[in-house]
């Protein structure tokens, strides 16, 4: 069976590192990126099932990534994480059809559950 591909974008390197370790353990294929530019470039080459992105980043930020994905790769599910526990931004992101929204610090267990749910929905 083909592995589900997950992309993690966060300018905090540790987030990517830890997400990779945890998610690879679950049998996912994980690629990590430190900024939006390199992530969007990679999306042009490869299709991902789930993209987990930080909201606030220099240059291309999480919202822009979300909009680009919804426009160009509508099959891809987007999960947003942010250190800004700001409700206004969450509402805006949800309106733009983000699959889930996690404020930092993130519970990896919840993240995994959210990914699983997204993939199940997809499979239906």
């Amino acid at each position: 069976m083909k592995k589900n591909c997950i992309m993690v974008i966060d300018d905090e390197k540790i987030v990517g590192d830890m997400a990779r370790r945890s998610l690879e353990q679950e049998g996912y294929e994980v690629e990590t990126f430190l900024n939006g530019e390199s992530a969007l470039a990679r999306l042009e080459q490869k299709a991902f099932d789930v993209v987990i992105t930080d909201l606030k980043m220099k240059g291309i930020d999480g919202l822009e990534i979300l909009r680009t994905i919804k426009q160009l790769y509508p099959q891809t599910v987007v999960i947003m994480i942010t250190a800004f526990a700001n409700l206004d931004v969450a509402i805006e992101a949800l309106r733009d059809d983000v699959h889930d929204f996690f404020p930092k610090p993130v519970k990896i267990k919840d993240l995994k559950a959210s990914i699983q749910k997204a993939l199940n929905k997809h499979a239906d």
Partner: peptide, 25 residues
């Protein structure tokens, strides 16, 4: 306050994710 929360949340999240990952792997 929003700035402080953001600044503190990032390292806090890092620590939390390291701990969670450490436990599971």
């Amino acid at each position: 306050v929003a700035g402080v929360a953001h600044e503190l949340n990032n390292p806090l999240n890092n620590i939390s994710m390291i701990a969670q990952t450490y436990e599971s792997v």
